[in-house]
Write a protein that binds this DNA or RNA. Structure first.
Lengths: 326, 326
DNA sequence: TTGTAAGCGTTATCAC
DNA sequence: GTGATAACGCTTACAA
């Protein structure tokens, strides 16, 4: 195993550790040409590999940043993460992606682990249940950016969101314009702000059109239970003619259900989904998607985090990126 | 920012650093109950968070492992990575995923970076162009497992592969059984073993059936150039009636092309793809997929790496997981 | 231009 | 049971 250390190189080159360190950090302004060469050679022959851990300990930065995703199975999350990774790769930082799996305990564990391992900052898709932790980080001035979901208003933090209510409102409006009256809304448990905001948009659109909100048309269920609830929805006397899926996972559940029941998309039912799915353009079905500008959002988050890491002070702000329907 | 260190806790609790360390490592066999409580209290009031970096430096392990993926845009890669992450999560190690983007230079950079940062081991989807580096790691006894693609035979390493040639052979055989004679093979540059092996299976199947291999039916191109080459393929006098896409990216390019040209899948052309794609089951098109047991492969790789990390010696071996067509 | 020595925050080995 | 003290491998004043 590797054991060659800077001291070995120094010895081999007949110089001191500090000189080697200078060399490694490319500070050869005032370095003798021969010293430089001797070091170079020693490194080669010994096969020396610097230990960044030791450096990090000293410098108090690891060039790692963490991304804690509430649920990685949302395509949106992976798109955003990828954008963040790309940004940091350009700045020679490495992103570490952790999946909290919608579990606040796991989220907590990850936040603590990453902080213990001294990552330089965190971008979090919050589960929303760890306010104290969030607050703690913010108060300590630890670089952090929240993504996708709101955290308690009182926390002064950088957040990146999309216009959930607005976009949903417009989409449902579209259904209404087309003459739909029986519009279903399918969503996972309303624990998080995105889902609540989208529901709000749905309700507002109906209200605005003078359509009564029928609670039976609002299907709230965990993915495993969704099928059963959909079963109930589609066995109602007055079946919905349009359906809004509040995210990609809900959408998947719906499509699977429809396939099974042989309900024809476009004919028996119109569908709008909040979120993009990979290869959406491959489907030649008449589904509309509300697409968040994932890459832009990711880049912005990365940029905001990077500024904090570089200690460029700036008051926290919430950035809202509008989504587009296609 | 956080600055509370073990020394602070020790001082506050009126004990020595070593005792605190004992406490943190849950070695309270021989620890006075009151000392324990004093430490506990000091930690609480100071809000002490241990610094794992320092510990890692001392213990020479970081509880990080790296995954270097040749190209993360292959769905297979993300499936495998996820399985690996899951495995290590159970063992309290964190995976760091890096995307080499099919670029050997980038791969090299990542390998060096991760090793410099002292990750405990590496699972690599090799680009294949960094033999010296690979060799170097193996010779130094650094824990490493190769995934998906073969590296030079001479290297005695753990590898996880699928039966590329066999599976392709069978698939093409199926085309032939159905009466197809003009079977195209679409692939990205034949730089890597998987693609070569799949091509080998294709050729063998044709040969075995006494069908002459027509080089014009073998489309080898980078994704951006693929469209042009497909254009050429489908403007031949004798158009292919069946097409084998050597991976998901090639498949995507093909489907886009077909859509544009309004060529009907199933009617004008039959399609088999090597690789799964997300939501494949949503498509109600008559496409066959050759699916690698990604999770199993990932778990196996993780397990093999973990054994190495735990210093459980074992001679390197190549594991071949059969794929299945659906 | 190069060397000395003191950290960085832990853990580990011994004494006591 | 607990505490000095020396590592771990590097960076960084400060000296020389």
């Amino acid at each position: 195993m590797e054991k060659v250390t800077m001291a070995d190189v120094a010895r081999a080159a007949g110089v001191s550790k500090s000189t080697v360190s200078q060399y490694l950090n490319k500070r050869y302004e005032y370095m003798g040409e021969k010293t430089k060469q001797k070091i170079e050679e020693a490194i080669k022959t010994l096969g020396y590999q610097p230990n960044f851990l030791a450096r990090s300990l000293k410098q108090k930065r690891t060039s790692f940043i963490g991304i804690i995703v509430a649920n990685i199975t949302h395509y949106f999350s992976t798109e955003v993460s990828r954008a963040i990774e790309d940004f940091f790769h350009q700045h020679d930082l490495q992103a570490i992606v952790c999946n909290a799996d919608d579990d606040p305990e796991k989220e907590k564990k990850y936040i603590e682990m990453l902080r213990a391992k001294q990552v330089d900052g965190l971008i979090i898709f919050p589960t929303g249940q760890n306010h104290d932790l969030y607050k703690n980080m913010v108060e300590q001035g630890y670089p952090v950016v929240f993504m996708d979901r709101k955290v308690e208003e009182s926390l002064k933090v950088f957040s990146i969101l999309t216009d959930n209510t607005e976009s949903t409102y417009k989409a449902v409006q579209r259904f209404i314009d087309k003459g739909h009256k029986n519009i279903a809304f399918v969503v996972q448990p309303l624990r998080v702000s995105t889902r609540l905001d989208r529901l709000e948009g749905y309700k507002r659109a109906l209200k605005n059109a003078g359509i009564e909100i029928n609670p039976d048309y609002i299907v709230e269920a965990d993915i495993p239970d969704m099928k059963a609830k959909l079963e109930r929805l589609f066995s109602m006397e007055v079946k919905p003619t349009a359906l809004f899926a509040a995210n990609d996972r809900a959408f998947m559940a719906v499509v699977e259900f429809l396939k099974e029941k042989k309900i024809q998309l476009g004919e028996d039912l119109e569908l709008i989904v909040f979120d993009n799915i990979p290869f959406a353009h491959l489907l030649d079905t008449p589904i509309s998607f509300i697409i968040q500008p994932a890459r832009e959002m990711g880049f912005k988050a990365a940029e905001l985090l990077y500024e904090q890491i570089k200690q460029e002070d700036r008051t926290p702000e919430v950035f809202v990126f509008p989504s587009k329907m296609i």
